[in-house]
Design a protein around this nucleic acid. Structure first.
Lengths: 283, 283
DNA sequence: GGCAGCGATACCATCCGGGTATCGATCCGG
DNA sequence: CCGGATCGATACCCGGATGGTATCGCTGCC
């Protein structure tokens, strides 16, 4: 199977419309139809049910959509990492670390300082991204290492080392009655009148239907809390970033959050290995 | 990047010889040279240093070799899983489970029985393979789930659930002086006169240089132990498979072995999910 | 210094991927 | 119930990419 065929199929499977898919791919519709037919012949499997009016995925088709996306990611990552390796050996070596914009600020600073002090350290570029985007950066070869937070981020497909575990706190507007408590439980804060828990985007950028405001990042969330429109359950370490108009109370039975450093398997880079070693030593 | 180009590059990178690589690929040498040049131009990176006498990998080249193999595996897996999905929906659904030939026999029997009793269970084919081959089967889409044994097998790139942990024993010829002991330590058994620990093949099928006999699987190993040519450190559960000419003694400070059930991310199969759920319940 | 081995280049044939025009089926509005 | 609109499939043609053969140029070695 050629990546071109996979790209074509993924486009059609996502659009469920040959015309739009062809447009997206920048080719005409007939060659696209032919390419898909040929792919189906070679696989010996129907991928799409076409009724000349609608296109739907077959069982095999949805498998190929999921697997094909992963395979295309892997090819793209191979390409990007090769380019980066070439740049690196041409004199501009450097690591790219990606982490959520909101989390582990202290840990990250500590890590970067400690690594920079190592012999043979290379410059580290830091990318700050929205929640759940780190995985994509790492998978697509845009970054060399990531700081992830279990259980929020999935670590499937990566090598990881645990860096630390922390409890969670509920962030409330200053002056809220609950802020006098030394601790609360989840039951105390679900369904607080006027302070719903927010909804985060799924991996595809859409939101589950339901109550609660939609938020894109942590800053936005804290804004909402300060405005008295939501409350938030966050890792303890976010306390360092809270203004005086916000208060935090430990939630005893919230799941513990584990910060891990993650990197792609097949990484043969000494710099990544050094950074990981530094990170585990800090722990 | 097309998979054809990747396959070509991987062949050359593995052979480090254009002529042999071309032969392996079933094409002539000139088109291969051209394809690699074109790939290098498009990536903007030298992948190979050619001195008209020898071919060596550049830094970027070895990155692309590692990443490219992974990407090709992913493409191949996508293809195979799609074919399997098509077969499954055409009336022959079934799971393929792969595990080491030597390990977890009881656990496996228990799991298969329990799963077969579930409503909606599908037939499970079991593949028994040599050590460290399970990962390949899973990655290449030849199997849907695997039983792996940490720390021997790497679980990188898969979703996993732990099924159980056990200690290790040293397997000795019956009558060996140490067999009267109730337990031993690693120090007691390294360098036993005439009973070296064996060497296992690496992922690429070659053996590290060093002392100790080369073994390919567990049966072969036990044979060697029975012949008084080696001793072996194995998970406790192997005791059930020992003949009377072999004896086992617990090794207190050997690393604990964890059996895990692993499956590829992107698996959308209900059967896999059911099997995993059954497995975790047994635990 | 001549020869053997190896990768690169030159040049040619072929096939495949892409484009345009058009068909056939289905849905929908009148 | 008919006609137009929409959409995927088919027919046919073209150009470029891919593969083959012949040969060159370099390098190491007897």
């Amino acid at each position: 199977m050629e990546t071109r065929e996979l790209r074509y199929f993924v486009a059609v499977a996502e659009e469920l419309h040959f015309g739009r898919a062809a447009e997206r791919l920048g080719i005409a519709q007939p060659p696209l139809s032919r390419a898909i037919q040929q792919l189906e012949r070679r696989l010996g499997a129907a991928l799409l049910d076409r009724t000349s009016r609608t296109v739907t995925l077959t069982e095999a088709g949805s498998v190929l959509l999921a697997e094909g996306r992963a395979a295309l990611d892997a090819v793209e990552a191979a390409e990007r990492r090769t380019r980066r390796a070439a740049l690196a050996s041409a004199g501009r070596p450097g690591l790219v670390l990606v982490t959520k914009a909101s989390a582990s600020r202290e840990l990250l600073a500590e890590l970067l300082d400690a690594y920079a002090a190592e012999p043979g350290a290379v410059p580290v570029d830091v990318i700050l991204c929205g929640p759940a985007e780190q995985e994509r950066f790492l998978r697509e070869g845009r970054a060399d290492v990531a700081l992830l937070h279990r259980p929020f981020d999935s670590t499937a497909g990566f090598h990881t080392e645990e860096l630390g575990t922390e409890g969670q706190v509920v962030v409330l507007p200053a002056g809220h009655p609950l802020t006098v408590r030394t601790h609360v439980h989840m039951a105390d804060i679900t369904g607080l009148p006027g302070l719903p828990l927010p909804r985060w985007p799924c991996a595809d950028g859409t939101y589950q239907p339901g109550p609660g405001p939609q938020v894109r990042d942590h800053a936005q969330l804290l804004q909402l809390v300060a405005l008295g429109r939501a409350c938030a359950v966050s890792p303890e370490s976010c306390r360092a970033q809270l203004h005086s108009d916000l208060a935090a109370v430990p939630v005893l039975d919230a799941p513990k959050v584990t910060t891990v450093i993650a990197w792609p398997p097949h990484s043969r880079s000494r710099a990544v290995a050094d950074l990981v070693r530094t990170a585990t030593r800090l722990r």
